[in-house]
């Protein structure tokens, strides 16, 4: 199958690749860019474990072709923390036990980030509505709602109120591997 040249911004980095037109964004992110925080949980666009932000909007990356994302700004879970500081949403999920197996977590957090960017003080129903396109099998959602509320109540994030997490993010965490001219095996 013939390939095409695409480029996009992922977590602030320009990436460019030759890919098949049919490659799904979720597979592009996971397999070409090596950013495996974005997950794949269904084949019918119901579960939302693949949610990333495209130009700030949550999208299910299993239902977007990588080619359609060309020229757009993509943000994945790996790009949530900045300069070693966790996004308040990440901290909130840890504070309020908003995750267990961790599989839905990246998508949930990105949706929460998009919601808070638009609506810094959502009520519980607004949070539930925002994440209603996403399934979690472990938490029963209540602690996810609390996690997002924690983030809303701590917009400055972790540093002010909470001891630093025990793991320091290296700068490489947000960097994207050089994939220019990578041939996608698809």
């Amino acid at each position: 199958m013939s390939s095409m040249q695409i480029s996009m911004t992922v977590n602030g980095n320009e990436v460019a690749s030759d890919i098949e037109p049919r490659v799904l964004l979720v597979h592009y992110i996971r397999e070409v860019l090596g950013l495996t925080g974005t997950h794949w949980g269904c084949d019918t666009t119901n579960c939302g474990t693949c949610v990333v932000l495209m130009d700030g909007q949550p999208v299910k990356s299993c239902t977007v072709l990588a080619a359609m994302a060309a020229g757009h700004d993509i943000r994945t879970v790996e790009g949530l923390a900045t300069a070693g500081t966790l996004d308040p949403v990440q901290q909130g999920f840890m504070e309020e036990h908003g995750l267990q197996c961790g599989f839905c977590t990246p998508g949930m957090m990105l949706t929460a980030r998009a919601l808070l960017d638009k609506n810094p003080h959502p009520d519980d129903t607004e949070i539930r509505k925002a994440i209603s396109g996403q399934i979690c099998r472990c938490t029963g959602y209540a602690t996810i709602v609390r996690s997002v509320q924690w983030a809303a109540a701590h917009p400055a994030g972790a540093a002010a109120d909470v001891a630093a997490p025990d793991e320091v993010i290296e700068g490489t965490d947000t960097a994207v591997p050089d994939v220019a001219d990578t041939e996608v095996k698809a």
């Binding site: 925080g37 997950h39 949530l80 793991e167």
Partner: peptide
């Protein structure tokens, strides 16, 4: 107490089977 698992999961640094290459 907060979970020791969480720091990797909230950063997308979990290591599930399909992440293995």
């Amino acid at each position: 107490i907060q979970r020791k698992e969480d720091p990797r999961f909230v950063r997308g640094k979990g290591h599930y089977v399909d992440d293995i290459v």
